[in-house]
Design a protein around this nucleic acid. Sequence first.
DNA 1: AGAAAAAAGGTCAAAAAAAGTCAAAGAAAA
DNA 2: TTTTCTTTGACTTTTTTTGACCTTTTTTCT
Lengths: 155, 155
Amino acid sequence: MSTLANKIERYIKEMMETAEKNCLELKRKDLAEVFSCVPSQINYVLETRFRDEQGYHVISRRGAGGYFQIIRLEVADNKEMKNLIAAVSETEMDFKQAERFLGRLLEEAVIHRNEYMLIMSMINHESLASAAEAEDRVRAAMMKNVLITLLRADY
Amino acid sequence: MSTLANKIERYIKEMMETAEKNCLELKRKDLAEVFSCVPSQINYVLETRFRDEQGYHVISRRGAGGYFQIIRLEVADNKEMKNLIAAVSETEMDFKQAERFLGRLLEEAVIHRNEYMLIMSMINHESLASAAEAEDRVRAAMMKNVLITLLRADY
DNA sequence: AGAAAAAAGGTCAAAAAAAGTCAAAGAAAA
DNA sequence: TTTTCTTTGACTTTTTTTGACCTTTTTTCT
């Protein structure tokens, strides 16, 4: 059985689909009630599954009548493309970052499942272990080249 | 009487058959309970009987909701393939060697043009430069993982 | 208007729930 | 009797879940 965090993630993503809009507004307390869990569990899900690198942006308001909004950032969007390139041109990238980033490309169908698996297998710690302290730098360079390749007109 | 390790091995392989799927997901703790042994016994079985060279690839996740997956590789009876995996696992590989290897995979239509481009962009010198003297070892590890991924029955 | 209460959401660290590692002890084989 | 293979358990690491305490915003009551 999948974890509670996974269920909440799926629930939110389904809602987003159904909404047929790129923005979803929810109340933390209500959502926690639906899953009968503590409210901070919702924050955990947002922090681990709905970060900017993953293609979602979250804003919230406290106080009575508070809420949070999840906005999906589309790669198709030109501005987002620039963000992507900027992100990937960072000099270091740990595995988790790369995974979130690739998860996003997969979700948005920029890459397909097989490409995802292939890339993941090449950037994982096992592959890069011999690089020692240079691991995150190598990964960043690889990710940059992946993006450049994906953007090539003849890909 | 056969050893416990052998029984667990048979049990897993039977499950794999029955599942009529190339991928099996299990919980280490549950399996240990079935055989009333310590959980690390399961790791022993996986390490000695389900290695890549033996035609199985294992992936796992720790933490609450953790599990492991055993994926069958399509090498089955193919001794040559198993040897190839073993060979690639050990070596260092410079760019030219990797290029020839990938070229063959492309010719034999194991991979397609896009995959070829993607992989090449990740193993080239530019990507791996920061690895310094470890470059060829990193490339070999990457190529091994590429091979494993391509052979995954669920690829 | 100002103060207090209520109604949210945020943070952080501890507890819980897995899985991994490694070395020592025991059993089997050579 | 060495050597190799198996079994066990103490300790580690990772991921999720929970709860106590904090901050912000609105509402209600003098």
